[in-house]
Design a protein around this nucleic acid. Structure first.
Lengths: 204, 204
DNA sequence: ATCTTTGCTAACCAAATGGTTAAACTTTAT
DNA sequence: ATAAAGTTTAACCATTTGGTTAGCAAAGAT
């Protein structure tokens, strides 16, 4: 066998699986559909990944490992809270526009099986808001920020950035717009969200 | 047959179905599990609701009809934006603590089948943000609010209130807390969220 | 009392689905 | 060239699953 062909099939499968799992979820996904999309025999899925469960986990870990660095930007770099908020909101929204099914996939599957988060925390050491909380406390003390609780602020940042994508059908219905209009709305939010947050927490 | 027994079985089924569908989703739910939970024979599910799809739709419409009035509070009553935000945040969070699976269920299933939203808009006439947007524009003009886009504000209000429940496993992991601590955090948010929003948009 | 309608169950069915196997084909090593 | 190892497929299998059926049981109507 050629090493290249090898990798190709295995990766083909992973890509197809990603496609199907992210749109249909674990329960809705069909092995046959993944095989068809990868252009191979169904037995190959088991040859490379043993079972649906393991293939799913491969896809899930892959997805999460894309998201984690985004979150780390806000948790563990050294810029000011204001800069973090600005950068994160802009970057994150750009990121999701490129991977639209990702947040929903992760949230849906974490709700289906909350134990997954344990696996993740073991592999992804740095998902820790302690530093962020300490920094918020410090900037509050320094009079840069109004009195603000770090964990609530973090939840708010995530909420404002992630929610619209997770609830996309709902948002589209309320704002009465199509995919085009939705994308425009999200582009607006790249600056809108950070301004909204900064206005709320910055001392003036 | 007694008319009461009649109603009882049908409702028993709906309650069991609600339970199973809301935790497992359409694809993960099993008719047998619903029957077991309702304490009846599987054939009864079809006797009363014909098919899994129709039973699911009954549950879904039921769930949405619980949520809709909550949203209407913020869209179509006559209080000021500030009061709306305060009331909505407090009421909505109380409401969800009582129905914890609801937002996730609705969002998950709307993503699975975006056409559902059409059915809903036909039955639930008043899911319309026009009045809210007009009110925001007016209060901006009057100098009560800073320049603010109505639709973005509405998205933000939803995001801040709904997201933590949808992403509960994620939030729990980040904040490193259990169900107790999560609930406390959400109780805090009843006032926290509205203050956060008001601080951001109110002219001072 | 008995006849009809309605509620309910056990047993059954066909299709779908995740997974396996045996054999063929390819590539690599000797 | 040939053997060994890795890759791929068609056919198959057992189980699960949504759904049906035929008949029993209970209640209401006559």
């Amino acid at each position: 066998m050629t090493k290249t062909k090898d990798k190709n099939t295995e990766e083909q499968i992973l890509m197809a699986a990603k496609d199907v799992f992210q749109t249909k979820g674990m329960d809705g996904a069909r092995m046959q559909e993944i095989a068809d999309k990868a252009g191979i025999n169904k037995a190959m899925l088991h040859y490379y990944y043993r079972s649906k469960q393991l293939l799913f986990e491969a896809v899930f870990k892959n997805a999460f490992s894309l998201l984690a660095p985004q979150l780390n930007k806000i948790l563990n770099d050294n810029s000011s809270i204001e800069d973090k908020v600005k950068n994160f909101s802009s970057n994150y929204i750009s990121f999701i526009i490129k991977h639209p099914y990702l947040p929903n996939f992760i949230i849906q599957e974490l709700n289906r099986n909350p134990d997954f988060i344990k696996n993740i925390q073991e592999n992804n050491s740095i998902l820790n808001i302690d530093k962020f909380k300490a920094q918020v406390a410090l900037e509050v003390e320094q009079g840069i920020l109004k009195p603000t609780k770090g964990d609530q602020l973090f939840i708010n940042i995530l909420a404002l950035n992630i929610f619209p994508f997770v609830a996309k059908p709902l948002v589209k219905a309320f704002v009465k717009t199509d995919d085009q209009g939705f994308k425009k709305l999200m582009e607006q939010r790249k600056t809108e969200v950070s301004e909204f947050i900064i206005h709320s927490i910055k001392q003036h």
